[in-house]
Nucleic acid binder design. Structure first.
Length: 880
RNA sequence: GGGCGGUUAGCUCAGUUGGUAGAGCACCGGCUUUACACGCCGGCUGUCACAGGUUCGAGUCCUGUACCGCCCACCA
């Protein structure tokens, strides 16, 4: 059976002192020059293995966790390449979004003001000034692009050093033109189909970033708070009160109702009555709703617009008034109370309400809370003192203050009506490890609203939409103006809708651009379409999509993975990929997630320099799919030693034996060349390793492949090579030497290729000593080919022969160790007691055993297995 | 409150159809052995979290409990 990867050179060149130093630079340059990882787009879909690479956020630095998970993907990519598939392995940069905005603002000392026109001559100051300079959105975006370009270069250098086999011609940026065009086109298609819609509704709002955020970007944080027992007086029976508990007394001015459970006997008689809010004297109804929990507080809750998501539900389902008090920046807005005052704020005691409220206007929620507690205490409406409590509060994951809920106009993607389809797609997807599907399903089933994709920010993909302005100056949101796809990407803050002139911007009868940008996930959820050339290169798209794998970490299943599945479902009616390979996190030795500060102490580049890229990759690849793994420099040292061992073992295997016939280290190994029982057993064992490794790689269990290969390799070095050393040097003739050489070379070739996905540098180095071409384009080892080397007779019984040899050799070693004798001490007499069936294998291994064990006399007796060893003396004159 | 993982040697972890408990690191002892002292050989180390159950036999399967971690939740 031909093995095209096994084409040894005639001029084998093994260095005297092989070393790892410098291999990364040497081979990274060679791979680039030779285009080893270049994607060949002439292959059809079946011949391609396509990867939906996660784009790391560039406005930060790469940390150990990135090295960890990207290595996992790279091992699979390299395996697939060696299996003969053309690997589509792009690299993206997530330079879109809030983190970049923040960095650019600080770095250049600027602030985005979308109302300004583009200034082509603008250059940022050398040093950021005290007062941020206001710049237009296009100028701001230019600065973002400029800064991220620098970051991206640093990232690329690290990835090359780590040995990621990406095709560096296939890069993308989430703010790049291609990404903008795809995002906008996909949005317009959603709009046309009705999958995207605009709505003015209560929305989760971050008061610092002053933008809407999505459910997926929430996180709960434990914060100290306090229950305040507040009394509401009956509107009809003076002196009768209802008591409630609240953690947000400052929202009393926004109170629109009280609510109790319909089955709660204590309050049933009050349902349908009205009460007056304390301090403000607003008449609000007492309502019944099943979400009111009799166990919580007093059993009656205050409904405000809006304190939390339950308030939104109550407000909507009970059809209550809206009484909004918080501005987008988180402060209490100015309000006129009393009959004829600001809508919704009618009250019986206007003067008192106004006096109270004026003390809150302009304050943040936190400050207003402290103030209103004083007022309530003075009025007697606060019963007892606040009772401190720790409770979970919702935050934007990147935010510093609790979220508020504000009514605003936002763009949404319909997801609630697609949950069943999304769950079904989750079942079609192959998850590695499988239990990660539960997180996805959990999330989909827990969705409580459509996906809000608009953000009131600047550095993102703009909504390609304008609105007509009525003659009265109001904006006609119901009839958005959209561009033809051929115009994309557009920036509605500078571009003009078809049929309008620039001077019509913002004037009655003219148009207004949509001021918002898309959520970063609304763009990155299209990563397969962006990299695959969905719009511009349908030929490429057909060759790579749906993709083979999405590698990513488990913390963004609810965001990136979910949204990508959704978008692919909407746009193509299919899954975006067949497999999801989920990586775990890197943890501190004390089991905490690697923190930023630690990540800065342990820089990835520093690790690569200290332990070598192969050493670091070894550690990374030992982390099983989906499993959080402790940071362990010890494992990197082990990996480095493994790489060094490979150099030395290869040097030995390729050394020219001292034979008259001039058999060199690199003869081609042909069918039937492996004849000695020990050699045949080794090859059979290796064939089994290859089968297992292939099976595991197909299941994305790269860690097991490494484990299997490594385990075999150490056996190969410590036992097999020691056993056959003498024979392969030709001490017992050319025939026996040829068998050992054939087995050694076949093993070396196979081991190098098994290790190649994990240790790309050292394996390429060794490969280059005696083979042509890159090992990373060589064929993955084949068990059938290996077995053909042992001829057609089969290898039954050979395994037992090898086992016996190893056991006896072990006993001799133990004896020498026990007696603290040098290993070169001869064994004067060795007696093997063993069953006849076992002893029958002895003739086949006797030569190797005697040579390796320095045995002078070897006897055998039938019986239960035992080995007796008598040591001799080291002969005088033995060279030391 | 719901869900998902985990609990095996001092440490980090394997243990895939149930069949006498494993590796590496660390530790101890020994050895310059014509690939490697960035090496080699040998040794020490376990109520497999706990309690039941199924089975001839359970680290492995079932039930429950405890603890750790993560995800989710309408936390007034």
């Amino acid at each position: 059976m031909p093995d095209p990867s096994f084409s040894p050179r005639r001029d084998v060149a093994v260095p005297d002192k092989p070393a790892l130093e410098g291999l990364e630079q040497k081979w990274a340059a060679a791979w680039e020059a030779d285009g080893v990882y270049r994607f060949d787009r002439t292959r059809d879909r079946a011949g391609v293995y396509s990867i939906d690479t996660p784009p790391p956020t560039v406005s930060g630095s790469l940390h150990v966790g990135h090295v960890f998970s990207y290595t996992h993907t790279d091992t699979v990519a390299r395996y697939q390449r060696m299996r003969g598939r053309e690997v589509f392995y792009p690299m993206g940069w997530d330079d879109n979004g809030l983190p970049t905005e923040r960095r650019v603002q600080n770095y250049y000392g600027v602030r985005c003001d979308p109302s300004l026109p583009y200034d082509a001559t603008f250059t940022p100051p050398d040093k950021p000034g005290k007062q941020p300079i206001a710049v237009s959105r296009p100028n701001f975006i230019e600065l973002c692009a400029r800064l991220t370009l620098e970051d991206e270069k640093v990232f690329e250098d690290l990835w090359r050093r780590l040995g990621l086999s990406v095709d560096w011609h296939l890069t993308y940026a989430t703010i790049g033109t291609a990404a903008q065009k795809v995002s906008q086109a996909a949005f317009l298609r959603m709009l046309a189909r009705g999958d995207a819609y605009q709505n003015e509704a209560p929305t989760l709002w971050d008061v610092d970033f002053r933008t809407a955020v999505a459910q997926a970007e929430l996180e709960d944080r434990e914060r100290p708070g306090a229950y305040h027992r507040i009394r509401f007086e009956s509107a009809t029976a003076a002196g009768a009160f209802i008591e409630i508990d609240t953690t947000r007394p400052e929202l009393i001015p926004a109170c629109v109702a009280l609510v109790a459970h319909p089955d709660d006997e204590r309050y049933r008689h009050l349902i349908g009555t009205e009460v007056l809010t304390p301090l403000f004297g607003v008449r609000v109804p007492v309502k019944a709703h099943t979400l009111a929990d009799p166990e919580k507080g007093t059993g009656v809750a205050m409904i405000c617009t809006f304190g939390d998501l339950t308030d939104v539900t109550w407000w909507r389902e009970l059809q209550l008034d809206a009484r909004a008090i918080i501005l987008p920046n988180g402060t209490f807005r100015a309000i006129t109370w009393g009959p004829g005052g600001t809508e919704g704020f009618d009250t019986a005691s206007a003067g008192r309400a106004q006096a109270a409220y004026d003390q809150l206007a302009g304050l943040s929620s936190e400050k207003a809370r402290a103030r209103i507690v004083d007022l309530l205490r003075e009025s007697g409406d606060l019963l007892g003192e606040p009772r401190p409590v720790m409770h979970a509060v919702k935050f934007f994951e990147k935010g510093d203050r609790p979220l508020e809920i504000l009514t605003s106009r936002q763009w949404f993607v319909r997801t609630m009506d697609k949950r069943d389809a999304l769950v079904a797609l989750g079942h079609q997807l192959q998850w590695h490890p499988p239990y990660m599907r539960a997180r996805y399903e959990n999330w989909v089933n827990g969705l409580n609203g459509d996906w809000c994709i608009s953000r009131q920010r600047f550095f993102g993909v703009a909504f390609p939409v304008w609105y007509p302005i009525h003659q009265d100056g109001s904006i006609d949101y119901a009839h958005p103006l959209v561009p033809d796809e051929s115009r994309l990407p557009v920036d509605p803050s500078t571009d003009v809708p078809d049929g309008y002139r620039p001077e019509q911007r913002g004037v009655p009868g003219g148009f207004a651009g949509d001021p918002d940008v898309m959520d970063t996930w609304a763009t990155s959820s299209l990563s397969p379409q962006i990299t695959g050339g969905w719009l511009d290169d349908p030929d490429l798209f057909a060759r790579v999509f749906p993709m083979d794998v999405r590698p990513q970490a488990h913390d963004i299943i609810r965001t990136w993975l979910f949204s990508t599945v959704l978008r692919s479902h909407l746009e193509h009616g299919t899954l975006p990929w067949a497999n999801a390979a989920i990586s775990g996190w890197v943890l501190d030795p004390d089991r905490k997630k690697m923190s930023k500060s630690k990540g800065n102490v342990v820089t990835p580049m520093g690790l690569l320099e200290e332990h070598g890229s192969d050493g670091v990759r070894y550690w990374a690849a030992s982390g099983r799919p989906g499993v959080d793994t402790a940071f362990d420099a010890g494992q990197m040292k082990v990996g480095r030693r493994l790489a060094i061992k490979l150099l030395n073992a290869a040097k030995f295997a390729l050394a020219r034996p001292r034979t008259e016939g001039g058999v060199t280290g690199a003869v081609a190994v042909t069918a039937g060349a492996v004849t000695a029982p020990i050699d045949r057993a080794l090859i059979e064992r290796l064939a089994e390793v290859v089968e297992g490794a292939t099976r595991d790689f197909e299941a994305y269990d790269y860690a097991r492949v490494l484990e299997r290969t490594e385990s075999f390799f150490w056996f190969f070095c410590d036992n097999y090579l020691e056993l056959v050393k003498s024979r392969r040097y030709g001490d017992h003739g050319e025939g026996p030497a040829a068998s050992a050489n054939a087995a050694m070379l076949a093993s070396l070739s196979t081991l190098l290729r098994l290790f190649a996905p994990f240790l790309p540098f050292v394996t390429e180095e060794v490969w280059s000593w005696w083979q042509t071409g890159s090992i990373h384009r060589a064929a993955w080892p084949d068990a059938a080919h290996l077995r053909s080397l042992t001829g057609t007779a089969g290898t039954a019984g050979d395994a037992a022969a090898l086992d016996l040899a190893v056991q006896v050799l072990g006993e001799i070693r133990r004896k020498k160790s026990e007696e603290k004798k040098p290993l070169k001490t001869p064994a004067a007499r060795v007696l093997i007691v063993a069953p006849a069936a076992s002893l029958a294998h002895l003739p086949g291994i006797e030569i190797d055993l005697k040579a390796a064990g320095l045995i002078d006399r070897l006897d055998t007796v039938e019986g239960d297995f035992r080995v007796d060893v008598e040591l001799g003396e080291i002969a005088q004159g033995t060279p030391s």
